[in-house]
Amino acid sequence: MSIQHFRVALIPFFAAFCLPVFAHPETLVKVKDAEDQLGARVGYIELDLNSGKILESFRPEERFPMMSTFKVLLCGAVLSRVDAGQEQLGRRIHYSQNDLVEYSPVTEKHLTDGMTVRELCSAAITMSDNTAANLLLTTIGGPKELTAFLHNMGDHVTRLDRWEPELNEAIPNDERDTTMPAAMATTLRKLLTGELLTLASRQQLIDWMEADKVAGPLLRSALPAGWFIADKSGAGERGSRGIIAALGPDGKPSRIVVIYTTGSQATMDERNRQIAEIGASLIKHW
Score class of each variant (00 low, 15 high):
S2Y: 12
I3L: 12
I3E: 06
F6S: 08
A9K: 12
A9Y: 15
I11L: 08
I11E: 03
F13S: 09
A16C: 13
C18P: 05
P20N: 14
V21T: 10
T27V: 14
T27D: 04
L28N: 07
K30F: 07
V31C: 14
A34C: 10
E35M: 04
D36S: 13
A40N: 08
V42I: 12
V42Q: 01
G43E: 00
L47D: 01
S51G: 09
R59D: 02
P60N: 10
R63T: 09
L73E: 03
C75Y: 00
G76W: 05
L79H: 01
E87F: 08
G90Q: 11
N98T: 15
Y103V: 05
T107S: 11
H110F: 12
H110A: 09
D113G: 11
M115L: 13
V117S: 03
E119Y: 03
C121N: 02
I125V: 11
M127R: 09
S128V: 00
G141A: 06
G142F: 01
T147S: 10
N152I: 10
T158A: 05
D161R: 02
R162M: 05
E164F: 00
L167K: 02
A170Y: 12
N173Q: 15
D174L: 04
R176D: 06
P181L: 03
A182P: 06
T186K: 13
L191K: 01
L191N: 02
L192N: 02
L192G: 03
T193E: 14
L197S: 05
S201K: 07
R202F: 03
W208L: 06
E210N: 10
A211P: 04
D212E: 04
P217S: 10
S221M: 11
A222F: 08
L223A: 10
I229A: 05
A230F: 02
D231A: 06
D231G: 04
D231I: 04
K232D: 00
E237Q: 14
E237T: 11
G239E: 01
G239A: 04
S240D: 05
A245V: 04
L247M: 15
P249S: 08
P249K: 15
K252H: 13
S254E: 13
V257F: 04
V257I: 10
Y260S: 02
Q265Y: 12
T267G: 14
T267P: 14
M268Q: 08
E270R: 11
E277S: 10
K284W: 10
W286D: 02
